[in-house]
Design a protein around this nucleic acid. Structure first.
Lengths: 199, 199
DNA sequence: TCGGATTGTTGGTCGCGGTCCAAGTTTAGG
DNA sequence: CCTAAACTTGGACCGCGACCAACAATCCGA
């Protein structure tokens, strides 16, 4: 615990290494048809090692997104002022910070082949993650449990729909924050008061 | 192909049988700690047979809910008038028709032990089901894909939050439609215009 | 220079969910 | 009575994820 790296064997594998190998294989054969074992084969690493870096196969596609989720959670614990407004605001920086990484791959696969149930489930799991993070923040802000969960689900649904639409149109063609604004506007006046014209 | 049931062996092992056995075991040992094999053992049926009646272990808890989802989908294909209003309206009959069945068990388990990731995933899968059904209906009604998905997610989120809250307070103590109204009201003016004061 | 202590990697085993299939059993109907 | 349809069964199979005891590489202090 000195500063950066104490004693010990240096890491032979890395998340990035596994993600690259996985992306190649997913593009070649699709997500469902690729096993964790194959990924680790190509990465030149044992299967056991995989689970030192990821909890789940689907984390390979969503790791960038998941990072943003924990960052969002961290930002929301320090909630000041209107919790709902804060949630919307922080959701916007979520969108701004999320790069066109492997997340897009998840949905591009959905476009190519009829989205496997696995992918659908992995995506909606993230929706629940965001919903719970937001709901928890709203509850801390004094909202009732039911209202907090509903609002969280609505906002999370907007975020995920935005990410999906953004990925499908090909990231780069549009900016995620813009798509998110469009998604939020579909939520109607629920969120409008919090956004003084996003420009 | 005469009228209703052609020749053949009648279904001896009914869904109800499996559901009952499952409920017992879930109450005894919890959902995660109960395997499909155990359920079929108690039901006096082979494991293979289980998958003739259910696609997934979690279907045991959610079969009543799933029925309402297909009913909802059926009702929404015949969409007349404002699709969004119709969605809200049909969501209300969804809530009215959903009895306090095994659905409640899913969430009561969540209350007892710290909800397993399995349960959480099963629940959010239903959210996605409802979202997609609603979104599909809205798209058919002329809404854009993004807006349809967002609205669907918001409404589905409200429904699931309502079902959860209703189950946790113990069904019977409150009526699901009432809880749903409360959940919808958290969505704000998005849905208000469609409900001319429910009762 | 040597021996821990620490940190990662490996192979292996295990249980479970879910799929598939070929064979067997029960029923309706000609 | 025979056949064809509907259903059940056992078994094999695969992949995910958990777990664990051994092994390897590195750092650090004596």
């Amino acid at each position: 615990m000195t500063t950066t790296r104490g004693a010990g064997r240096p890491r032979a594998a890395s998340r990035a290494l596994l993600e690259e190998a996985a992306c190649e294989l997913f593009l070649e054969q699709g997500y469902a048809a690729t096993s964790v074992a194959e990924v680790t084969m190509r990465a030149g690493v044992s299967r056991s090692t995989f689970f030192n870096y990821f909890d789940t196969k689907s984390d390979l596609l969503w790791s960038a997104f998941d990072e943003q989720v924990v960052a969002l959670a961290a930002r929301l614990v320090a909630g000041n002022g209107d919790a709902a407004a804060a949630a919307v605001r922080e959701l916007r920086v979520f969108a701004a910070d999320l790069g066109p990484d492997s997340v897009a791959l998840a949905f591009s696969q959905e476009a190519a082949m009829g989205l496997g149930e696995d992918l659908r489930l992995a995506a909606v799991r993230r929706l629940a993650d965001v919903r719970d993070v937001v709901a928890s923040s709203l509850r801390a802000g004094g909202a009732g449990a039911l209202a907090a969960e509903v609002t969280g689900a609505a906002l999370a649904g907007a975020l995920l729909a935005a990410v999906r639409s953004w990925s499908l149109r090909g990231p780069g063609r549009v900016a995620l924050p813009d798509v998110l604004e469009e998604a939020l506007s579909a939520l109607g006046p629920l969120v409008r008061p919090a956004s003084p014209a996003p420009r």
